[in-house]
Design a protein around this nucleic acid. Structure first.
Lengths: 128, 128
DNA sequence: ATATCATATGAACATATATTCATATGTTAT
DNA sequence: ATAACATATGAATATATGTTCATATGATAT
């Protein structure tokens, strides 16, 4: 209850006291090593695609073999529409691709790295 | 406009026509290889934690060195509160830990695998 | 052409999430 | 004790996200 008239910015960035390790020069060095905005976005987008149980299940199933939408919806015990929407999501981020045979559409993984990332993460969670 | 009186379940799962590769037996085999629900949740939670630009930046910075909240908020050019909230998030999923020195709190990575996953993903996105 | 099947998709809805604001907590200095 | 500072946190808000419902699209069969 002490600030009522000031617009409250980042409270005075003048300089970090000695307690806080980073001098402006140090921070500059760190900043220069940081990823650029577009890499950041792409990384986040990539991880976000894996950050949902339904999509993890889809990837997990497709890791085993190519599957059609119907079978996926049976395997996940979910409505066809929900599965289809998530497959589109995964297709938009290039994680899966599709192959059409008549009325049926088969989905499969479209990326060699997914398996690696997936397994590293799985092992990590197991040995935690 | 053909179904008006039925409650519209998964439209008749009786069996997949021959077009759809999976017979019930095949699906059973695949299902037995799928991850259990709790592993699924943990994987999704883990990835979701990395699925946000702010958190990617935080991890990226901490990948370089331990940093205090203030420095992180300068580096990311974000309010202290937002950074603090996200650090709590990352702490809850055990991705970062903190060390207190006087008024200052230093954050650092709390997981050996993050670096690996992070780099695999970064390389993947670069060579796409 | 009509019916049926497999998949896709727009809209609506409910929930989750990220940031901001105001303020609380805990530490150090005076 | 009071002030200044670093960080944490609850509430509010705006936006993003996931699922469902209804229906569209495209393919095959009759």
């Amino acid at each position: 209850m002490e600030k009522l008239e000031q617009p409250v910015e980042q409270p005075s960035l003048e300089e970090c006291e000695e307690t806080c390790g980073g001098t402006e020069a140090d921070l500059k060095a760190i900043r220069s090593q940081m990823l650029d905005e577009s890499s950041i976005s792409e990384m986040a987008e990539w991880f976000r695609a894996l950050g949902d149980p339904t999509r993890v299940k889809l990837i997990g199933a497709l890791l085993q073999q190519e599957l059609c939408v119907h079978d996926l919806s049976v395997l996940l015990d979910m409505g066809q529409s929900a599965v289809s929407h998530q497959l589109r999501y995964l297709r938009n981020v290039r994680m899966v691709k599709r192959r059409k045979v008549g009325k049926t559409v088969y989905y499969s993984l479209d990326d060699a790295h997914i398996s690696e990332i997936f397994h590293v993460t799985y092992e990590h969670l197991k040995h935690k």
